[in-house]
Simulated assay, not measured.
Amino acid sequence: MTALLSVRDMSRSFGGVAAVQSVDLDVDAGTIRAVIGPNGAGKTTLLDLVTGFTKPDSGSVEFKGDQLVGLSPRELPSRGLMRTFQSARLVPSLTVRENVMLGAYRFTRARFGSDAFRLARSRREEKELTVRADELIDFLDMRHFADTLAPALPAGAQRLVEVARGLAGAPDLLLLDEPAAGLDDSETRELADVLRAVRTGGISMVLIEHNMALVLAVSDRITVMDAGRVIAEGVPKDVRGDPAVRKAYLGVDQ
């Protein structure tokens, strides 16, 4: 089976410090691949390299058979790849619904002129985006926040809005950077249910996460990074007991 996403020999250094070193990563369609590791392991840098926010020193990224290196981040949603960030990047002047709608704008055809004069196509597309946004807001059980301005949300809720915005673009692959940050235990369990439902719906995911309960609950396979390198890879039960993984997290041989 050809991987949906295939990263090969990805490397990047900053000021002589190797942030990512010769990393290989495959994500199969219909799966959740977790990438875990201690702070500074290079996990977010890896996502930045995959999505064009950082240029690699070497390496390749193939998505659905096409090379992504050299493309700008804004070109990726139309190819079926969306991502979230460690810190929620919501537009503060927009409501939750409007922020979610932004994720689906790749489906619109109306241009500035038609929008300015409120022509039929623009009105129709805005209605379609609103319906899609409300469906996702309901999916995340956040309807009570739909008309709330983004800055007024609790930090955990802002993370969920980012997830909804990513899903609004109907991606084939969604890259999630610490989506459980700021969530309590109950909210994290609800997020696990959401991610499993998203996978069942046909969307693959890469999950960067420190919450091991979430990782073990939803991941099909786990990649473990430390100091920019992959030190372990496998199914959750094997990775959890790997001595190299325990040493990276605990600092001692176990």
Score class of each variant (00 low, 15 high):
Val163Ala: 08
Arg83Pro: 08
Leu76Ser: 01
Ser78Ala: 15
Leu71Tyr: 01
Pro92Thr: 00
Val69Ile: 15
Arg159His: 07
Gly103Ile: 02
Leu140Ala: 03
Phe85Lys: 06
Gly169Pro: 09
Gln158Ile: 02
Pro73Asn: 05
Arg74His: 11
Ser93Tyr: 02
Val161Arg: 05
Gly80Asp: 06
Phe107Lys: 14
Leu153Arg: 11
Pro151Gly: 08
Ala157Met: 11
Gly80Met: 09
Phe107Pro: 00
Leu102Ala: 13
Leu119Asp: 05
Glu98Ile: 07
His144Pro: 00
Arg111Asn: 07
Glu135Ser: 11
Val163Lys: 02
Arg106Gln: 15
Pro154Gln: 10
Glu162His: 08
Asn99Val: 01
Pro73Ala: 04
Ala164Pro: 07
Gln86Glu: 09
Pro77Asn: 05
Val96Ser: 03
Ile137Glu: 06
Ala133Thr: 11
Ala120Asn: 11
Gly169Ala: 15
Asn99Gly: 03
Arg165Ala: 00
Arg109Ala: 10
Val69Leu: 03
His144Met: 13
Ser72His: 04
Val69Ala: 05
Ala170Tyr: 03
Ala104Arg: 15
Phe112Leu: 14
Phe139Ala: 05
His144Trp: 06
Val69Arg: 02
His144Leu: 04
Ser87Val: 14
Arg132Gly: 10
Ala146Asn: 06
Pro92Cys: 00
Glu126Pro: 01
Asp138Thr: 09
Val131Gly: 01
Leu153Ala: 06
Pro77Phe: 10
Phe139Gln: 06
Ser72Arg: 10
Pro77Thr: 10
Ala152Pro: 00
Ser78Leu: 07
Leu102Ile: 13
Phe85Val: 10
Arg79Trp: 12
Phe85Cys: 03
Phe85Gly: 09
Arg83Trp: 12
Thr84Asp: 07
Glu126Ile: 07
Ser122Phe: 11
Gln158Val: 03
Gly169Phe: 11
Arg121Leu: 14
Gly166Arg: 07
Arg111Met: 06
Glu98Tyr: 08
Ser78Lys: 15
Met142Ser: 04
Gln67Cys: 05
Val96Asn: 04
Gly166Tyr: 07
Phe145Arg: 08
Phe107Asp: 13
Val96Pro: 01
Asp141Asn: 13
Ser72Gln: 15
Arg159Asp: 08
Ala146Ile: 07
Leu175Gln: 05
Glu162Leu: 03
Asp134Leu: 13
Asp141Gly: 02
Phe117His: 00
Pro171Arg: 07
Asp141Glu: 13
Gly166Val: 10
Phe139Leu: 11
Pro171Ile: 07
Leu119Pro: 04
Leu160Cys: 05
Gln86Tyr: 13
Pro92Phe: 01
Asp141Ala: 14
Thr130Gln: 12
Ala157Asn: 06
Arg89Lys: 13
Leu174Thr: 06
Ser93Ala: 00
Ala168Glu: 12
Thr95Gln: 03
Met82Val: 12
Gly80Asn: 11
Arg74Ile: 03
Ser114Asp: 10
Met142Phe: 01
Thr148Asp: 04
Leu167Glu: 09
Glu128Asn: 13
Glu126His: 11
Leu160Ala: 03
Ala155Phe: 15
Ala155Leu: 14
Arg97Met: 08
Arg123Asp: 06
Ser72Phe: 02
Gln158Pro: 08
Gly103Gln: 10
Thr130Glu: 15
Thr130Phe: 00
Glu128Phe: 06
Glu75Arg: 14
Leu153Val: 12
Thr108Ile: 15
Val91Thr: 01
Gly156Glu: 10
